[in-house]
Each structure stands twice: as C-alpha cells, then as structure tokens.
C-alpha cells in the first residue's frame, strides 16, 4: 500500500506538474527552434511575444466575460486564444515587415537580427506593460479540478491524494494536439516541406521556386501561434506576470539547445527533459522516502535545491548536454 501511495505522490507532485510545465516549455521551444532554423537567429523577443500574446488573450477574456459568454467548465481564455493568436501574429508580422525584412534584404549577419530582436523585445515589453501593467493576474475562470484530492481518495482508499487540475489537463491536450499538427504539417504538407527545405538550403529553395518571404511569414505565424499558446497555457496553469515571461526565456532556450537547435523533435524532448529535471530537483522527497523506506524519518526535506534555483537546473543540464553531446540530443541545425 505504501508503494501505491508513493507512486501516487510522485504522480501528483512530480509527473503531472512537470508534464504540464514541459508541454508549455516545449511549445515555446518549438517556436524558438523554428525561428532559429529558418530565420537563423535566436529570437530574444520570444518571451515577450508570449507575454504580449497572453496579455491580449486576457483582455479578450475580460471582454468576453463582460459580454456574458461562458464555456461551462472550460476557461473562456480558450475561446479568446485563436483571436489572440491572430492579433499577435499580425503584430509580429508587422515587426518583420518594419524591422527584420530589411536585414534579410541586405543579407546582414544573423547577429544583427539578434540585436534587432532585443529592440523588438524592449518594444513588446513596453507594450505589454502599457496594455496590462506589471501586476500578477489570474484569468482562469473555468472549473478548478478534473480530479480532486477528495474524489481520488474516495475512489482508491489511499491516504495519498491525487489532483488533476483542469488547466493542466487542457495544457496537455492542447500541447499534444499542436505538436501533432505541427509535425504533420512539417513532414507531410507542401508548405511544411518548403519550410524544411528553406532551413536546409536557402538558395536552393529559391531556385526551386519556393517564395522565401512566404516561408518567413509562415514561420512567424506558426512560431507566434505556439508562443501565444504556450504563454496562455502557462498563465492559466500558474498566473500571468509579465516578468515571468521574460525569465522563462532561459528554460525555453535551454530546452531548444538541449534538444538540438533547429530540431522540432528535439525542442519537444528538451522541454520535457528540462521540466522533469526542474521539478524533480526542486521537489522535497521526504514524504515519498517515508513511504518507500518504512521507519526512516530523514532530518531535512530531501530537497536537492530550493525552488528559487530552478533556473540553475536548466543551466546545468544545458552545460552537461553541451559538454557530452555538443549538437544536442537530436543533432540540431536542420529539421
């Protein structure tokens, strides 16, 4: 029985939260890796794209709430999400038209695009602050739990409870569906293959009649959609705070690099590697140790690192992967 309790506790405190967080990171890292593969630079504005997209989704959510719209147990943000993606994609395409396109035309070094992206980061950061401020905002208005601790205990008779929040479940479903759709798109459709071709060899893609500007636009739209989804799901799961979206840039970059920059499969794998390590390293294992080793009451919490150091986990994994497997888990730089 103790082993069952330990398993439930691991599931409840490690596996479920890490899976949800990993999905959010994976969606973010997919966007970063697509832009890296096709536009050939790391987009420092990605975190703030997530932030501004989420801010727009929140504003739309408020608007829909004021209109009295309801989705029953589901959060209204899900209804606002497609509109938010469309608006944010429009904004991002505008930055491409006004900022990045010039540098593609003069064939500037990609490092210039990195610097331009920090300019866009400042812009988006300021706009987010203007739109919605810097305070913490909760906008999850749906039902709280799909499975609550009491229900679970009543069903199973275990002392340890398990809760699955609706937001976590939605995260897993939405992330799973979007990954499936993205991989299908990249591997099966003409436009998706054109994106991979462009990433492999820009000139040859052009010589095959692929319109580079169309590929670039498509990349921005997909990356933005993934970013806004990641941001909204993260906000539903935890809460919205503009600064957190800047900080999440590090685990997202780490996930993309750990997986192998430019490799979508790698981005997803990297997201989960980072999320599971972060949660596992910062979780106090005392309770589970108590179940597994009867009669042992360890003095400390058995927590490897306090939660404040979760960024250190991304960093250490990144360093280890780079030291032992420099191209990432999935040999990056090409799709």
């Amino acid at each position: 029985m103790d082993i069952a309790n330990a398993l439930v506790a691991i599931l409840n405190f490690v596996v479920i939260p890490a899976a949800a967080y990993g999905s959010q990171l994976a969606l973010g890292a997919l966007g970063v890796t697509l832009i890296y593969g096709i536009l050939r630079f790391s987009n420092f504005a990605h975190g703030d794209t997530m932030a501004i997209g989420t801010a727009i989704v929140i504003l739309l959510t408020w608007g829909l709430q004021a209109l009295g719209v309801s989705l029953g147990p589901l959060p209204i943000a899900l209804l606002a999400l497609p509109i938010g993606i469309a608006i944010t994609a429009g904004l991002v395409l505008l930055t491409d038209r006004l900022v990045y396109r010039h540098y593609r035309r003069v064939r500037a070094d990609p490092i210039v695009l990195v610097m331009a992206s920090t300019g866009v980061m400042f812009l988006m950061n300021g706009l987010t602050r203007l739109l919605i401020g810097v305070d913490e905002i909760r906008f999850d208005d749906g039902a709280r739990f799909l499975i609550s601790v009491q229900q679970f205990k009543a069903w199973t008779g275990l002392t340890e409870g398990l809760a699955l929040r609706l937001s976590q479940f939605i995260t897993l479903v939405v992330a799973g569906l979007s990954c499936w759709a993205l991989f299908r798109f990249l591997n099966r459709t003409r436009s998706g293959k054109a994106m991979r071709a462009y990433s492999d060899n820009e000139d040859l893609a052009l010589l095959s009649g692929i319109d580079p500007e169309r590929v670039v636009r498509l990349t921005w739209i997909i990356a933005t959609a993934l970013a806004v989804m990641a941001g909204t799901l993260y906000g539903l799961d935890k809460s919205f705070k503009a600064f957190n979206y800047f900080q999440i840039l590090l685990p997202i970059f780490a996930a993309a690099i750990v997986g192998g920059l430019g490799s979508p499969t790698g981005a997803v794998a990297g997201g989960f590697v980072i999320a599971f390590s972060e949660v596992a390293v910062t979780y106090p294992w005392k309770k589970i140790a108590g179940y597994l080793v009867p009669g042992w009451q360890p003095e400390g919490l058995l927590q490897l690192l306090s939660t404040e150091y979760k960024f250190a986990v991304s960093f250490v994994i990144l360093i280890v992967v780079l030291l032992f497997r420099p191209t990432g888990l999935f040999r990056g730089k090409s799709f």
Binding site: V99, M115, A116, V120, L123, G126, L127, L130
Partner: peptide
C-alpha cells in the same frame, strides 16, 4: 512611465 521601454526599443531599432 512604461513608455520608456518602448522608447528604448525604438532608439535601438
């Protein structure tokens, strides 16, 4: 006051 982030972004770009 948050306009200064926008301003810095514009100056850089």
């Amino acid at each position: 006051p948050h306009m200064r982030f926008v301003a810095m972004g514009l100056v850089l770009l």
